[in-house]
Amino acid sequence: MTSEERLYADLAALGIEYAAHEHIAVFTVEESRQVDAEIPGAHTKNLFLKDAGGVFWLVTVPAEARVDLKALPKVIGCKRVSFGKADDMERLIGISPGSVTPLAMINAAPGSVTVVIDAGLAAAERVNVHPLRNTGTFGLAGADILRALEHWGHEPVIAAVPHQDGS
């Protein structure tokens, strides 16, 4: 069974409803804007980070957010962060850049990557994320993303992720 097949099976087993959309491959938030215009709900971007202590983080924020990477460590409880490498991403969460999604945590060993979900997204009625590939979008409730993460053995951190504009 592929990771995507396991994802569909787990969402069904958990009774998680989602709206699936197929579209052209998008690799950046900028490229996804045209696709996003057709899909209702909160759109996301994901940052795969590594802190100075060697801990990996997957941070999911609203697509338009400009995360303040200097202020983020204090909020989530870690040391200075930088972007993680593609080979670490593929090794730990089983996907490549451009397809990053909190749903990729289905592939991650518990404790290998800490997931941070922006508080606004966690409470949102509909959050749009990739289904392990960048040619599709799933729209599901923020609470259901949290349930799936917990089902896979991850304890997501819900945080008011700091933005560069000070919000």
Rank of each mutant, 00 (worst) to 15 (best):
K79I: 08
L49D: 02
L121F: 01
L146P: 03
V61I: 07
L69T: 02
W152M: 02
A104F: 04
K85E: 12
S99I: 04
V100R: 04
V55D: 12
L69G: 08
T28Q: 04
V116E: 02
I93F: 06
W152G: 05
W57D: 10
K85W: 10
V115S: 09
R33A: 02
L72W: 03
I95W: 01
A104S: 15
A160M: 13
E155N: 15
I76M: 10
A109W: 01
R126M: 06
A12M: 05
S32C: 11
N107V: 04
E155R: 14
A119N: 09
P131N: 00
F56D: 02
I106T: 01
T44P: 00
H130W: 06
E31H: 08
P156A: 09
M1W: 15
D10T: 14
K74Y: 09
S32E: 08
A42Y: 08
N46H: 02
L69M: 12
V113G: 08
A123T: 09
T135K: 12
A141H: 04
G136N: 11
A109I: 05
I145H: 03
L58I: 10
N128Q: 07
H163A: 13
F83W: 07
R147F: 06
A109H: 07
I106D: 02
N134G: 01
H163T: 13
E4Y: 09
E5M: 06
G166I: 05
I93Y: 00
E17N: 09
P40V: 01
G139D: 00
A160V: 13
L14D: 06
S32G: 08
G94I: 08
A122F: 03
A123N: 05
T114G: 13
V29M: 03
F138R: 01
E5I: 04
F56E: 07
I39Y: 00
V26N: 10
R126K: 11
E4D: 14
G54F: 04
A109G: 11
E90T: 14
